[in-house]
Write a protein that binds this DNA or RNA. Structure first.
Length: 106
DNA sequence: CCCGTGACATCGG
DNA sequence: TCCGATGCCACGG
């Protein structure tokens, strides 16, 4: 869909589609955009392009529910606080994917 | 234009 | 069960 937009923007759009109180993995995002193996690229976009307030990268975690890097604020600490603020319980930088994993379907 | 890098994911020993 | 190594993608210099 929409196709004329760069892969990067597509990822941002997908991440921005994650409902509040839910989280998604980098692999999940990559798969939704059509790059099941581009999980790395997804994280790369967040890191190189901190669209921060425009892209809720704090709702994106690793395949294990583990909160990985964060280029903004105080790092993972800030990220963790934002998730908890949205209703997602975070234990030691780890969220319960069984409860909060986004299905990809809004 | 070519090389290096990185916030992941998966497999093997 | 835990640890290490590899593959993939796109961006930046």
């Amino acid at each position: 869909m929409n196709t004329i937009i760069p892969f990067k923007k597509l990822v941002y759009k997908t991440v921005a589609s994650i409902p509040k109180g839910r989280v998604a993995t980098y692999g999940q995002i990559a798969r939704l955009v059509g790059k099941p193996t581009g999980a790395r690229a997804v994280g790369c976009f967040m890191r190189t392009n901190p669209d921060a307030p425009h892209t809720p990268c704090h709702r994106v975690v690793a395949w294990n529910g583990k909160l990985t890097g964060y280029s903004a604020g105080g790092g993972l600490v800030q990220k963790k606080m934002m998730l908890e603020n949205e209703g997602v319980q975070v234990l030691r930088n780890t969220v319960d994917l069984k409860k909060y994993l986004w299905s990809g379907i809004v």
